[in-house]
Design a protein around this nucleic acid. Structure first.
Lengths: 191, 191
DNA sequence: ATAGCATTTTAACAAATGTTAATGACAATG
DNA sequence: CATTGTCATTAACATTTGTTAAAATGCTAT
């Protein structure tokens, strides 16, 4: 548990004291490649911090296709519960796409800590606002950039992902087909 | 102010008592067509409820084009402050696209009321969650539907808007050009 | 009413992206 | 080490969407 505390301090920018408080309500969990640990339609009341591995959130569209909404990499928070539930029911799925290690704590415990610890309150609100501005940025990119520029933006944001996760996940994240992604990769190669 | 209270009760599903409490911190404001009353980069700490007219939120992309992110119609809340600011600075613009009448109150007043009145707390959280799920729905539509189906979805969601606001606003909301919108309108006519 | 301006539509063509199907690369398995 | 299955690439063609420019329409202020 010592390692968790130092990781919170170093990678999630929390003070020593706040990390200790948080660690009291945190447990760590591991999942295997492919595990879906948040499921659309089920009650969900936890928060997650990425320690190791890669995850994605996704939904199924009206044609039955999976659409990746976000990727999560180490030392980032997974979207706050508030932004991915409706009446405590999850509106999306979250899947481990490598083996992953997560810090897990209940939204309720976090709420209590936020009330008693100003630093944790600020920290949690920063995570929430980051999530929201990322959503706006993604929306603007999706509307104003063509597929090639969206891929370049993606590569910039997630330099390692393209070689680590199935391209189908990336294609749906970019709003294009697998075939188009492959074509863009070739076009960008030759330069 | 009586009219405001009855509007809150009827159109925003608040109880009589809660409406009264809210109305104590609410003032109404009117704006003219074209007025930009929330500006990107400026401090912004108010919440808005739509009473009359139509508004939109928008940003300027890297090519200098305006991109409409949302439309707001009567008896709906404008996106909560939390979702459109970063460190209390607005990340987008909000503009009246007809003459509008709004109910305005400070985010801080709302926070205080939420702490003392459980019903208002639930009401405000519902507005926030609705905003967030709408964002996810929009993202899914943008990725998984072609332009024609996005237009049909838009018409379903805002039956009157297409005849009331400049098509350029709608086109950027749908992620297409004005010319494409006009073409789709013709294609859909002939059926 | 009309001149002037902004918006919408139309047309012709170019570019981007989707669709389908075949091929290639690679890892897992018997 | 052959076989199978999954994923990525390629090719050919179809469709959608973008671009540019001109024409039509609508709106506003004299």
């Amino acid at each position: 548990m010592d390692k968790l505390i130092s990781s919170l301090i170093k990678n999630f920018s929390l003070s020593n004291a706040s990390s200790k408080q948080l660690s009291d309500v945190i447990s760590t969990r591991t999942f295997n490649t492919g595990d879906i640990f948040v499921k659309k339609g089920l009650i969900e009341s936890n928060e997650f911090l990425m320690l190791e591995g890669i995850c994605r959130s996704y939904v199924i569209d009206s044609d039955g296709n999976e659409i990746t909404l976000s990727f999560f990499t180490p030392n980032k928070a997974i979207s706050p519960n508030l932004t991915r539930t409706k009446k405590n029911i999850s509106i999306l799925n979250i899947q481990a796409i490598t083996s992953v290690k997560l810090a897990v704590f209940s939204s309720n415990d976090l709420m209590l800590l936020m009330e008693s610890n100003r630093e944790i309150e600020i920290w949690a609100n920063q995570i929430l606002q980051k999530e929201l501005t990322e959503k706006v940025d993604k929306e603007i990119a999706q509307i104003s950039l063509n597929a090639k520029d969206r891929l370049l933006t993606f590569r910039n944001q997630f330099p390692l992902l393209e070689n680590m996760v199935p391209h189908a996940y990336i294609a749906s994240y970019l709003g294009i087909t697998n075939v188009s992604l492959s074509r863009l990769r070739r076009d960008l190669m030759s330069k």
